[in-house]
Amino acid sequence: MSILQKIKNTVRSRSIHVSYVDVGSCNGCDIEVLACLAPRYDIEQYGIYVHNNPREADVLLVIGSVTPQWVDKLRDIWDKIPEPKVAVAIGNCPISGCVYARRGTLTSPPVEKYIPIAAQVPGCPPRPTEILNAILSVAPLIFKDYEEKQP
């Protein structure tokens, strides 16, 4: 392993930039994600920074069952994120549609149909600790030795 790679690993483990997108949920999961920012959970002490620009992000938190308006836009957002990138599904909605998975609703879950999802956090809504654990456990898997893993 080159020294450059080591430096990259160290830096990336302490600087995970997260962007979240709500593709049609009830806002419950948004509130839980925002609770991660609050002093009680405080994700910045783990080196995770939340901001809403996909071009600066490493991790995309996808919230909500997919509504028709989001189908193409979600793909655009995913394409804008620079490599290495990872998408995490937050809550039941991106996994199964949760309470929206009924006849007559304008949703088309799961979100895996549109973008590749690396981790899922089930729950309606998931607890902030669960979101935090998911990000912290999936980020090293993707970002560590990213350049060496490339074919």
């Binding site: 039941n92 996994i95 199964s96 949760c98 309470v99 998975a101 899922q120 089930p122 729950g123 309606c124």
Partner: peptide
């Protein structure tokens, strides 16, 4: 119980 569907 199916975790992806259960709302606890």
């Amino acid at each position: 119980v199916y975790p992806g569907h259960c709302i606890r």
